[in-house]
């Protein structure tokens, strides 16, 4: 555990020792802010229109009409941002040779992988915490329900965890950060759009593909529903990703 935390700490420090961590944090806050403003603007105008037709402003639910689409859009933003976090994790260590230090130290592969995963998760959590400030502002002027927000954030954490696990796997297979970043992004995109293909497929296929699509499982979280089915999906996805990363690192050892 102490080894894992040491590596997680090193990863997190690595993000903020270079401008990268700050750039990602800033970029994410900016993108989130843009969508936040857009949806809020839309919400305000719609509720004003409604009130002109004689219905009160409370008729529109801020959770349903603003926070939910905002969180769903966030799930797409992280699809673009997370590859930047994970692309260097292994690739950079391999390029600079520091992987030799890790692999010849008395730590297991799994401790290294989980350490790197936790490090990336910590940065990702920091990103989400920044957006929590925006959410807090809503309480100043409105009265959103806390439940759906919390479940939405839980969903985002789990979804991001899956992305990070995939990103680690891809990064462990190359020396080149750019290749790792592009391949990770491509994989994320596939995991996202796989349900679109499902829309035009037959009913059985549609169910299967929609179940596979990593973002479809997020819908319920954004609605405020915490379904164990989705939690199990995400946790097993993360486990599989980390397991495959361990296999990739091990096979790299044999091949040299």
């Amino acid at each position: 555990m102490s080894n894992t935390l040491a590596i997680a700490g090193k990863e997190l420090r690595g993000y903020f020792a270079s401008p990268m961590g700050w750039v990602i944090l800033g970029l994410f806050a900016l993108l989130f802010g843009f969508f936040y403003y857009t949806f809020m603007d839309l919400f305000v105008r719609q509720s004003m229109q409604l009130s002109q037709f004689g219905q009160g402003p409370q008729a529109m639910n801020v959770n349903q009409y603003m926070i939910r689409p905002l969180l769903q859009n966030t799930s797409v933003i992280i699809l673009f941002v997370l590859p930047m976090i994970t692309m260097r994790t292994y690739a950079e260590e391999k390029r600079s040779g520091t992987i030799e230090l890790l692999l010849t130290s008395p730590v297991t592969d799994l401790q290294i992988i989980v350490g790197k995963f936790l490090g990336a998760m910590a940065l990702y959590t920091a990103m989400l915490l920044v957006t929590a400030v925006y959410m807090g502002l809503l309480y100043r002027f409105g009265d959103p329900e806390v439940g759906p927000i919390a479940s939405g954030y839980l969903g985002l954490l789990l979804l991001g965890g899956c992305f990070i696990a995939v990103g680690l796997l891809v990064s462990s297979m190359t020396k080149n950060q750019i290749v790792a970043g592009m391949a990770t992004f491509g994989t994320f995109l596939m995991l996202w759009v796989v349900s679109w293909i499902g829309d035009s497929a037959g009913p059985t296929m549609r169910t299967v593909l929609s179940y596979l699509s990593i973002t479809d499982h997020f819908d319920d979280f954004s609605k405020g529903i915490i379904d164990t089915k989705h939690i199990v999906y995400y946790l097993s996805f993360i486990t599989l990703g980390l397991f495959l990363t361990a296999k990739a690192v091990d096979s790299e050892r044999w091949r040299g």
């Binding site: 102490s2 040779g97 230090l101």
Partner: peptide, 28 residues
């Protein structure tokens, strides 16, 4: 075992002290 690979495995963003602290931790 202590190992010095052909290229010293240093993290460019860490100071020497931070780096050695980190190594001390993962060496247990």
């Amino acid at each position: 075992t202590g190992y010095l690979p052909e290229t010293p495995p240093l993290y460019p963003d860490m100071t020497v002290r931070e780096y050695l602290d980190f190594v001390a931790r993962i060496k247990g």
